[in-house]
């Protein structure tokens, strides 16, 4: 899987550029490069549904982020406890990497998964659901409760955005009475 490792390194480089570049529009474009690399990685990992969804979601995410960066850029100030903050965050990240390394060592090796639950779906999905796409039959038939919860979360998020971006905030009842007095 050499191409997978090369693409992952490309994505890491894209993420580093997105975080370190000064111009905000360039940062968003570099993030888009990283996301499109993720789309190709999904194709290599044999997940075409995820590749289609990641591609279109990446485009929409880019448009929304560009909407946020349409305001002018700001110069970065390096005052304050710059050295102390950098050292603390790097120490934290090194501890996190070490703990993650210890956790990864106990996983089954890459390419040989444990498929205790999925073996039932692989064996019986064709007779029970009669859908050619196994992912679709899992999210809408075997595990439809999961999708119902996802619809709830999406609805809550839409209502949250509409509440945050409302034109005028409603005043509290007491303040309104005070204004009338």
């Amino acid at each position: 899987m050499l191409e997978l490792n090369i693409l992952l390194i490309f994505m890491i480089l894209g993420a580093l550029i997105a975080l370190e570049v000064k111009d905000l529009l360039s940062a968003v474009v570099a993030l888009g490069a990283s996301g499109l690399g993720l789309c190709i990685v999904f194709l290599i990992l044999k997940a075409p549904d995820l590749a289609i969804t990641q591609l279109v979601v990446e485009i929409l995410c880019l448009i929304i982020l560009i909407r946020a960066t349409i305001k002018k850029d700001l110069p970065f100030s390096t005052s304050g406890r710059w050295v102390f903050n950098t050292i603390v965050s790097f120490v934290f990240i090194i501890i996190f990497l070490y703990l993650g390394y210890l956790a990864i060592k106990d996983l089954p090796p890459f390419g040989y998964p444990l498929m205790r639950i999925s073996q039932f779906y692989l064996d019986h999905a064709k007779e029970l659901v009669r859908s050619a796409n196994l992912v679709s039959s899992i999210i809408l038939n075997f595990r439809a409760y999961d999708t119902l919860g996802e619809a709830t979360v999406l609805f809550a998020s839409v209502v949250g955005v509409m509440t945050v971006m409302r034109k005028k905030g409603r005043k509290k009842l007491e303040e309104k009475e005070e204004d009338e007095l």
Binding site: L45, A47, T53, S118, L134, V135, S157, V164
Partner: peptide, 22 residues
């Protein structure tokens, strides 16, 4: 390949977009 993580991630991608918008 294992279809179960793919099905879980498919919903997670769309939720991630809505959260980013928020």
């Amino acid at each position: 390949v294992d279809p179960l993580p793919q099905a879980l991630v498919l919903t997670s991608i769309v939720i991630g977009l809505a959260t980013t918008a928020l």
